[in-house]
Amino acid sequence: MHTTVLGDSLQTSALGFGGMALTHVYGGTDDDAALGVLNSAVDAGVTFIDTADVYGQPQPGVDGPSGANERLVARLLADRRDDVTLATKFGITGKVPLAGQESAKPTRGDAAYVREALEKSLTRLDTDVIDLWYLHRRDPDVPIEETVAAMAEAVAAGKVRHLGLSEVTAAELRAAQAVHPIAAVQSEWSLWSRDVEANVIPACVESGVGFVPYSPLGRGFLTGTLTRDQVASDMRGSTARFGDDNWDANQRALAVVADVARRLDATNAQVALAWLYESGRRAGLPTVPIPGTRSPSRIAENAAAVDLVLDDDAMTALDDVSSLIHGTRNIVADPAWISSGRE
């Protein structure tokens, strides 16, 4: 597996692994099987492991993020900490405001919460240091400079090595970068989600910040392996792009990916990931996608994308995919939940 250097001299494997795939979001999970998948990823050289304090089934009686996925990753780290570049996130509280409960904040970024979240993540992960610590979503009630200053305290204390931001705008990135070096921005970027190209990616290039695309395979849609029944049983079925009308309409975009894959003797997933690598190279942007999976065989398939070369005809065809997509990428009703809703 090749390596990539993101911002702030953070070196990672060229492909990462998104831990959210091993949670209830995509259906039931088995922790032992999930641990096997994580070990398979590291065995394949996919050593950049991404998790978050909010990933995992909420626990009865637990106030805030359950940390279930972090505890799973801790089982991997127990034997392989030196093999792993560990990324985790904080800032999403796991609380959804309901009618009459307006005080339930979905995000927090105040300094006290930053410090509390760090200690809880370190405990759940059973580690002394986090390699890359992201602000998962910014708190609109707290200046991002205040949040990042509190995160920087963790770097000074030796508990965190590098800082990252998720779903930030270009202006938010610049404000944060003025406080402390930012190694990476994590946001959705793929053949069917390209809004970050307007402002966020140019700001990353300008600031020397790497980019970590989440959902690089369109939550599995771009692989061409999903069925309507599969997505109906998990969170994807309630989102705009996977709805009945849009599911059918978006098959036209999927056909373009499949055509390129057949011509290059590759899989849809490999083509979608290779497009991200080539798009990053053309922009001058270090790019490390973090697809998730529950199948060890998919890890090997995805890893092969690092060496797949897309010719100009392939790039031209793939660049048009986003124009065929029906439905927004946002998975919640609040437009400000994603960066383009705040630009």
Results as ranks from 00 to 15, higher is better:
I299A: 03
L35Q: 12
A74V: 07
K95G: 03
M20Q: 06
D311Q: 08
M20C: 07
D31M: 00
G210S: 08
A258M: 09
A175P: 11
D63C: 10
A336W: 13
A261K: 00
V96Q: 10
A272E: 10
F242Q: 11
V168K: 01
R108T: 07
L10G: 01
R263M: 03
A184M: 07
N250G: 12
G27H: 03
R108F: 10
G16E: 08
A184T: 14
G218T: 10
L22C: 03
G61C: 03
A149V: 02
A41E: 14
D265G: 00
G36P: 04
V179S: 04
S9M: 02
G341I: 08
V209M: 07
W275R: 12
T328M: 04
V42H: 08
A112P: 09
S215G: 05
K89L: 05
V73K: 14
I290R: 06
E167W: 03
D128M: 00
W337N: 10
V321S: 11
W189S: 02
V46C: 02
A283S: 15
P291G: 06
G91P: 13
A198S: 09
V46P: 09
W275C: 06
V168E: 13
G7S: 02
L10P: 03
R174M: 10
L135A: 07
G64C: 03
L125T: 12
T127D: 06
R241F: 02
A269I: 10
V200M: 00
D30N: 15
L276P: 01
L118N: 14
T127K: 00
D311S: 09
G341Q: 06
G164F: 02
A41T: 11
G158H: 07
L324S: 05
G19H: 08
R138K: 14
N39H: 13
I144R: 01
D126C: 03
P202M: 00
A157L: 09
S13M: 10
Y113I: 08
P286G: 04
D312Q: 11
V332L: 15
A157I: 08
Y134I: 05
T127Y: 03
A41I: 03
G292D: 07
R219E: 14
G45D: 12
L135P: 03
S9W: 10
I182E: 09
V84K: 07
V200Y: 09
D79Q: 08
T4K: 04
L98F: 05
P213V: 02
L264D: 06
E172Y: 12
G27Q: 12
V231S: 02
K105I: 12
I290M: 09
R298M: 08
T223S: 15
Q59M: 06
H2N: 14
I130Y: 09
T227H: 01
L98H: 12
N330G: 09
G208T: 08
R281L: 05
N330M: 07
L191M: 01
E102M: 09
E278Y: 01
T23Q: 05
T88P: 09
V62E: 15
D265Y: 07
G56T: 00
F48H: 15
N302C: 14
L308C: 04
W133C: 06
V62L: 13
A152P: 00
Q11N: 09
L132S: 11
L173F: 00
R236H: 02
G19N: 14
A283K: 11
L122C: 08
A156D: 15
G341S: 13
M151Y: 07
L226A: 11
P202Q: 04
A304D: 15
A336S: 13
T147W: 05
V129E: 13
L226C: 05
A150R: 05
H24L: 05
L163Q: 08
A149Q: 07
L122N: 12
